[in-house]
Amino acid sequence: MRVALFIPCYVDQFYPQVGIATLELLEKLGCTVFYPPNQTCCGQPMANSGFEHLTKDCNRLFTENFLGYDYIVGPSGSCVLHIKEHLHLDKLEGYAAASAAAEVRSRVYELTEFLTDILKVETLEASFPHKVGLHQSCHGQRGLKLSQMTEVVGPAFSKPVKLLKMVKGIELIDLARQDECCGFGGTFCVAEEAVSVKMGKDRVADHLHHGAEFITGADMSCLMHMEGILHRQKSGVQVRHIAEILNSRL
């Protein structure tokens, strides 16, 4: 199984360990992993600011980089969702380009959904003996449907929780608000700084209140936002991307 690793730009620059954990985890599970070196950004920050029309170059590059693999896997629900929904190349660029983009869209997976739905992982050799709070990032949860949403009347399920429960020693804490947005929101985090920070503080407080030692999630951007707040509060609680926990050694 040829898997292309999609490492979002901010993970590449600020959280290389998340990329490494993702890579190691996939290899451990038997995938042949490739990292297309020219990858940069999915274009989401622009698009969410209303500049989707400027993301054409980005889309072309992404398509070139990621065409031809069985799967494309990224440790970020938000970036993956953006690709799934918005990676379009105009017919102006030719039929081949448009269908290549469609091909890429159909093969891109967020890490936990890839592990659950494609690799059908049932056990993991991992151990993380700590109290952990799971942050449900909105784009992964409500966009990619990684887990059931509290608004919806339907059966309960959660791909991240299912995976985390395979980790030895882990204790998942309950939260008062299971799936409230952390307020990161891409450019929202600076454009609406006051509300963004307040949302982040509230989310962090929920985890602290329930005794989390670590906050994890499938989206590093949300975790970066919450980490920024935790640091500023001089809290000892740390953030860990879910890939790091799933890849943690015995």
Binding site: F14, G19, E227
Partner: peptide, 16 residues
């Protein structure tokens, strides 16, 4: 009201 993560020694791309 937030800190940024400390820049790591190398990016993932460089590590790779």
């Amino acid at each position: 009201q937030r800190d940024m993560p400390a820049p790591p020694k190398e990016s993932f791309g460089e590590w790779y």
